[in-house]
Each structure stands twice: as C-alpha cells, then as structure tokens.
Amino acid sequence: MNFTGTILLVDDEPHIRKFIGLVLRQVGAPRIIEAGDGEEALAVYQREHPDLVLLDINMPGLTGVETLQQLKAADPDCLVVMLTSLASRQIVEETLALGAVGYIRKDTPKDEIIRTLSEIIANCLDAGEPAEPAP
C-alpha cells in the first residue's frame, strides 16, 4: 500500500480499532491516530488534519453518517473511507453519495481488508481529485 500520510481511525469499539490499526501497520501506514466517537473524530480532525479518515458507520452519539457530513462541511476535500459491517450495508450508498470515497467491510478477513483499502487509496492517488465517490 502506497500511502505515507496520517490516518485517523474512528470506531467506538476499541478491539476493532486495535485490529484495523494492526492491519494498517502491517501494510506500512506510518502514523495512525484514533478516535472513539464522532465528536472526538471532528476535534482530532481539526487539530491533526489527517490525510485519510477511516470512519465507522454504526456509532452511538454522532453516527458515522452525521460525522461524515460534518467532516465534509468543515473540509470538502477530506478523504473518508467508511468502515462497515453486514448490518450497515444499506447505509453505504448514502455515505458514498455524501462524499465518502469508498468502504471497507471490517468483518471480512484481513487480506480482503488490505486489498480493498489498497484499491481505494490507489484510486484516490491516481485520481488526484478525492471527492469522486467510488463506484
């Protein structure tokens, strides 16, 4: 995976942050910061300006969709990849329409997560223009 920036990882479940964080490190992501909910994610985004946000859809408090909307409102260019599970598959289309660049099923095996993430990042880097939703 050819990605050298900072990644903000947002999920309310610490073990999932741990797992996805380890996967990201395995593929060489240099710097990962974490947030446990939407509010915290917005604050961390303002402070750290990460290059990529991995954002859980199903969170208590601010939902992934609401967090995405506020991130996009604050910074239309921010790159957001949604973290989804089987339960939130209906919402995925909505997040893509709102400007997420893609989604990762966090309940799939590690290699599949890596493959999907690499594809999304390659697309974003190639396109140069990150605002296009993935197909």
């Binding site: 479940e13 073990h15 999932i16 741990k18 797992f19 380890l22 996967v23 395995q26 599970s85 089987l86 339960a87 966090k106 309940d107 799939t108 095996p109 590690k110 997560i113």
Partner: peptide, 17 residues
C-alpha cells in the same frame, strides 16, 4: 446474528494477525 458478527470477526482478525 448481526450483533454477534462484529465481535466474532474481530476475534478472528486478531488471531489472524
């Protein structure tokens, strides 16, 4: 089933790593 999927896939993922 939905609620069981996430923790189960996390266990599997951490074991994988």
């Amino acid at each position: 089933a939905h609620d069981l999927r996430n923790p189960l896939s996390t266990i599997r993922g951490l074991a994988e790593i």
